[in-house]
Amino acid sequence: MMHAIQVNGLTKSYGELAVLQGVDLTVARGAVVALLGSNGAGKTTLVKILSTLLTADGGTARVAGHDVRSEPAKVRAAISLTGQSAAVDEILTGRENLILMARLRHVPDPRAVADGLLEQFSLAEAATRRVATYSGGMRRRLDVAMSLIGDPPVIFLDEPTTGLDPQARLEVWATIKELARHGTSVLLTTQYLEEAEALADRIAILHQGRIVVDGTLTELKALLPPATVEYVEKQPTLEDVYFTLLGASQEGTTP
């Protein structure tokens, strides 16, 4: 079976600094895999190698069946990159960003594609406003919408919710779940453990240049000693308080 992403022994150094020291990772077709790691662990470096923006020093990586080194054009036709590593154009309007992306992906009727996505991502009203005036959540929704043009089978989401408020984060989560339902393979990098728990079929942890753990959440939990039962008084979390107080507006925006 052909995997969406297959990485073997990937290495990359910046001068003396060895960022990736033999990364092995597999993303099955249609799966959402979360890549966890602290700041500077090399998550973004790995994503950039897989999206053909950087060349690895050693090892192999195949995306959608194509080698990133020898067939970069075929890889680019099969992927899209969003989040921290890919910006939206702040001077253009939301619609102009989508039309530009549709033209660069060479899809027929860029305008119709843009209008459809504006509707789907609740950005129709803001379509003719410059992106500089958008909120963080709207901007990230536009970012994800741009990455869907041309239906790429593999999507890289590089820290898609970093810097977002809790409300906007839930909006982006809902979008990612929707993606997964349509069979798109997703490699998601994040620093937030609860994000990986909420979205991913499998979780891989990148630490000191290697994948130290790779498995489902249940498998990962099984690595620890069996759970002990404790009785604790259940206090509401700050998140519960936040969303209870903002309850009305939350229902309005979370699909």
């Binding site: 950039k48 999206s51 053909t52 923006l53 054009a73 680019r76 036709a77 992927i79 899209s80 990159l81 921290q84 590593s85 890919a86 910006a87 939206v88 154009d89 702040e90 992306m101 660069l104 992906r105 060479h106």
Partner: peptide
């Protein structure tokens, strides 16, 4: 520096 150049470079253009 904004990352849009990388986005363009990751496209099939």
């Amino acid at each position: 520096s904004s990352g849009i150049f990388e986005r363009f470079q990751s496209l099939p253009i």
